[in-house]
Amino acid sequence: MADLRELYQETILDHSKKPRNFHEIAEADASAVGHNPLCGDRVTVYVRLRDDTIADIAFVGQGCAISKASASLMTDAVKGKSRVQAHQLFQLFHRMVTGKPGDPVNTAGLGKLAVLSGVSEFPVRVKCASLAWHTLEAALESKKEIVSLE
């Protein structure tokens, strides 16, 4: 049965109250704004790239505990990773949170992000948990376009 403590684990509460990398990056190479109009959640993700590596990442915005914690955990998780690795991590993460309620959850390869596995028991919160990730993808996409234009 879905347990409250699974959704609101200590780590999640901690990251939502004291989000890591919660600031703008003035000279970001890429950024994007994510918006969930249904709940008013809004997040901006900033990225600095060194070659193909996410050298630095930060975010600002407002939202529920799940969306804030997810954004915070994401910035920690993808810092130092290549674009491809970040994308793969998102796919694993997405698979975890969109699992059918009641099914066993696969947290392999997700490290600390596994604390968000409880989201799969609350399908309406999947959007909250994935907003920052979609925004990161959009930021990295836009960078690609700029690069290809150059």
Partner: peptide
């Protein structure tokens, strides 16, 4: 506490409440 989190925690208690802008964004 964000209203979403209020609604999720109340849901676990069997309580249905709404959270969001209630289709009244100009009012919000």
């Amino acid at each position: 506490v964000h209203p979403h989190d209020i609604a999720s925690i109340l849901d676990v208690e069997g309580i249905c409440v709404r959270s969001g802008h209630h289709c009244a964004q100009p009012l919000m």
